[in-house]
Every structure is written in C-alpha cells, then in structure tokens.
Amino acid sequence: MSAEIRNTSAPRSGENSWLWLVKIVTGPLLIILILVHFIVNHFIGQNGLLTYADVVAYYSNPLIPLMEILFLATVVTHSLSGLRGIILDLKPSRGVLTAVDWLLALVGVAAISYGAWLALVIASRS
C-alpha cells in the first residue's frame, strides 16, 4: 500500500551541521549589528539620518561603511540560507536544488556587491 514511502531513500545531505552553524552564528551576530544599525540610523542627531547630507556626513567615518558592509553580508547570508532551508522543506529534486543553490549564491553575491558599492560611493562623497 505504501511501498514508496516504506523504503527509506538514502538521506540527502542538502543541509548539514556546517550550514546550520552558519545560521546559528549569523543570527546572534545580526541581533548585535541590527541594534547598532538601528541606533546610529535613527537616534543620531535630532531624529536620525533623514537627509542626504546627514547620510553622507555619517559615512565620512571610515568605520561606518565597514560596519554597514559587514552587516549587509551577515544579513544576506542569514536570510538566503534561511530561505534555502524553507525551499528544502518543499523537497526540490536534485536538479532544482542545484539551480536554487546557484541562484541564491548569485543573488547573495550581487546584493552584497551592490550594497558595498553603494556604501563606498556615499563614503567617497564626503
């Protein structure tokens, strides 16, 4: 009656302890970074960074673009590895999973590069 699910297929290692470690390490790191990101973006000065001039002035400190790029890389890694975990719950075939992996890697690299470029452009304008 249920032969197809009685034979436990060989478990696929689409997820493993190292990938999971990435999520559990980036998680707490994000809590710290997002607090910093939030405090500096919304509580600096009177009401936070509201105008273009505010943002450029804020990015003149070389530590700031560094911190924001680190934050971006961490948040992109956490969110895309988490999204992959949700997709894995949908039991993608081996081929689809490979495509998903490449797509997520591409999106991740593109997002981090774009964000880093933006941060450095703003920093160079001060």
Partner: peptide, 23 residues
C-alpha cells in the same frame, strides 16, 4: 517574519539606490 524580512531586505537595498543619484 523570515519571508517578510527577506522581501524587505531587497526592497530596502533597491530603495537606498536613490542615494547614489544625489541629494
């Protein structure tokens, strides 16, 4: 919240692109 925040992350990045276009 995971799905919502992932969506917002990319929306936020696109919106901040306005910074590159000047004051």
């Amino acid at each position: 919240t995971a799905l919502g925040l992932t969506f917002y992350l990319f929306l936020h990045l696109v919106m901040l692109g306005q910074l590159a276009q000047g004051p």
